[in-house]
Design a protein around this nucleic acid. Sequence first.
DNA 1: CCACTGACGAGTG
DNA 2: GCACTCGCCAGTG
Length: 110
Amino acid sequence: MKRGGTHDRIYAVVRKIPRGRVTTYGTIARLAGFAGQARLVGYALSALPNGSAVPWHRVINAQGKLSLEQNGSSSGITQRLRLESEGVKVDAAGRVALATFGWRVAIGKS
DNA sequence: CCACTGACGAGTG
DNA sequence: GCACTCGCCAGTG
C-alpha cells in the first residue's frame, strides 16, 4: 500500500544508510525518486518525531556539513555525537569527509 | 485559500 | 569561502 506521502518514501531510503556512513540530502532525494528535490528530504526529516527508527543523523548537506549545526539548531549536537559514536569524524566546523564516510551505494562495480 | 517558513542544491558575483 | 537568488514541495496559522 502506498503511503501517500513523500515522507515515507524518504524515510525508507534513510533507513538503508549503513552505520558509520553519511549521505547528502540530494542523494537521498535521488534514491527515493525525488531527484532535485533535496529540500523535501530536509522537510521530511524535520517532521520526524523524536525516537523514530530513522537514522536522520546520517543525513548531511552536499557541503559535507551538518545542516542542523550550521543552522544553530540544538539538535545539531545530538547529530554530531551520534555520528562520532558510529566512528564518523566530524570537523570542528561540523564538517564530515564525504570522501571517507560518504555512503557509496552501488559503486563497487566497474 | 493565501502567506510564510523551512534539516537543500546549484549558480552567480 | 561568503552572500544572494531561484526552483521545488509540505506543514502551519
